[in-house]
Design a protein around this nucleic acid. Structure first.
Lengths: 341, 341
DNA sequence: TTTATTACCGCAAACGTTGCCGGGAACGAT
DNA sequence: ATCGTTCCCGGCAACGTTTGCGGTAATAAA
């Protein structure tokens, strides 16, 4: 009802809509007096330009779409905070989509985003996504895209990721230095970029310290229900069971911790545990959990900065590149070194 | 570029846009053959109606706005999941706004939501918000609004909340039955509805069991940085310090736990601790944390259902009412009863 | 054969905004 | 007196879609 339009102002002031429009954006070809008249009246009626009309006309929305697997995840919600902070400063609105780790929903989200005419897209792939042709299609249509965290290398975009290799290397090295020899790696679907990088870091550390790489110690989970129980059981049933667990996600770390508790395995006495997580309560767990933390907020910030750069200098923006943000190793009780008697 | 419009179809098929429009929505006054022709062609070109044009024309968006203090919070992100699940089924898009616990940002969010012509608003108030006149203004302009979780009783809308009184009563009662006598209550800003209700539940339980209510045992925090340290110190310095802590939020529970750890206070031996939280790792904390859990997802679902009802049956919808969703008490190690020698 | 009915379809306006084009008034220069 | 400028403003189209109204042709009823 009460939304006041440019027409209302024009009618009330007995001038044309074009004049009002120009006055509002301070065009030089409008009389100073008229401008002030319009500005004042618009202010008084609390006029707000209709962004929908604008979008329709200009075929853009001053909004960027963010597609993440889920927001009920500390990493992603932190990343979104980083994104929003920057985006709002630069005059962009942020529209959040959750793929819920489903390829189908992800594709639908992208369609939605396109329908809503987002000016650019920030995406972290769902765990189901291995085919990125739909993304490539959008990109070829000229939509600026930046990938972050879970990225695909089959898509030539700017990518912002944590230093997964370095983080995994540091975690593994830390375990080795604490005297562990059989380090299990519980990780996420193998086709994800972050999985490969973390696995590579893990292997590199083993190699550097002369430990063998044993495929039997590496287990891949999904993001679905808790599957850590069986995984832990299998690992413990090995001829020479692991003396340390290095997990690649929040959920796996918590699941692993719970499973070990249930089986009355003492941490860090029997086995050591370290996660690649963004849990904000890691130091309050039982035992306090050593982790490799990723600077989620910073990743979001850098990603959106690059995206906006892409949107605004469309033609001559910096070429796609991959930015690695350093991770940080935090050592806590769960990886305390134990004197073997 | 490639977005295909109704005009393109019309031109290609040599018919008018009106015919295409009507064919697409299956109007009875279009020849069956023509319909099929249009449908098939539209399908082939992957035609998608432009929601922006629709919004402009119909002055609505088939979107509902959700304003929450922050999404980096398990309760709210779960609630949003509940909201989205229902909303999408009913053909509504969800736009998420974060007030970041700031009154100003909340107001800006509301303005944004209005500008974007949301069909309805779901809101959980920021902790800074005590004046709701801006919300009332929107409501009086005919915007359907449903409040959830942190609600104001100065605004006559449907409200969906957890049974805060019951939950707090149960938690307090549980502590008392476990032998605690001096129960401190660390809570959030006093003007929030949930604060009052929880405090009331706490008092009611004390009263029922004949324990005195001591104001010195009740401390109010904000949602800002961790202030639990000083609060805990003050409480412990009391002539007769508390033997139990009942906290009203995730953050307070964790902060309290950390503070107690730092001060080498044993839980539950020295003091007992129970939270009103939605932490998904509560059972993995040290010690496992007893909590009153709120069914966040269900709250979101019920809220959005009511909102959609309001949107669609605008005139004769059910009158505003307050719906209480039951909470659940989960007893864990942190409130184990200790035999006093 | 005329009239009424039916089945189909196109025109144009509208939603709010911007930008191109054009045009009138006032003024200075020739 | 004519021309060129400058300053200010309005008309109109367009973005994609829906919808009321009108219109044509064919068919059925009289």
């Amino acid at each position: 009802m009460s939304t006041v339009t440019i027409k209302d102002i024009a009618r009330a002031l007995n001038i044309s809509t074009s004049t009002v429009s120009r006055a509002l954006r301070g065009s030089y070809e409008i009389n100073q007096e008229t401008k002030e008249l319009v500005l004042e009246y618009a202010e008084r009626l609390n006029y707000r330009p209709n962004p929908i009309a604008l979008s329709l006309k200009e075929n853009r929305s001053r909004a960027i779409g963010v597609i993440v697997p889920q927001i009920a995840n500390y990493f992603f919600s932190q990343a979104i905070n980083g994104i929003e902070a920057i985006a709002y400063n630069r005059g962009y609105h942020v529209i959040i989509f959750q793929s819920q780790e489903s390829y189908e929903r992800e594709a639908a989200n992208m369609q939605q985003a396109m329908d809503r005419k987002v000016d650019g897209l920030l995406i972290s792939l769902s765990s189901e996504t291995s085919d990125v042709s739909h993304l490539r299609a959008l990109q070829e249509q000229g939509l600026p895209i930046v990938q972050f965290d879970r990225v695909s290398h089959e898509l030539d975009t700017t990518r912002i990721v944590a230093d997964n290799f370095g983080g995994a290397f540091a975690a593994t090295e830390h375990l080795i230095k604490a005297g562990r020899q059989r380090i299990a790696h519980l990780t996420i679907p193998p086709w994800l970029s972050i999985t490969k990088e973390r696995l590579a870091g893990y292997r590199a550390a083993l190699e550097q310290y002369g430990l063998p790489y044993d495929e039997a110690l590496v287990r891949y989970g999904s993001f679905g229900q808790d599957e850590t129980g069986p995984m832990v059981d299998e690992l413990l049933a090995l001829p020479t069971p692991p003396d340390a667990f290095f997990t690649a996600s929040d959920r796996l770390a918590l699941g692993c911790l719970a499973s070990l508790h249930q089986r009355h395995i003492a941490i860090p006495d029997d086995v050591s545990l370290i996660g690649f997580t963004n849990l904000n309560a890691a130091d309050l767990l039982n035992p306090a959990l050593s982790t490799v933390v990723q600077p989620a907020q910073e990743i979001g910030q850098v990603a959106v900065e690059r995206l906006i750069e892409l949107i605004e200098k469309k033609q001559k923006a910096a070429p796609p590149s991959t930015v690695k943000i350093p991770t940080r190793l935090i050592v806590r009780e769960s990886t305390r070194s134990v004197v073997h008697s």
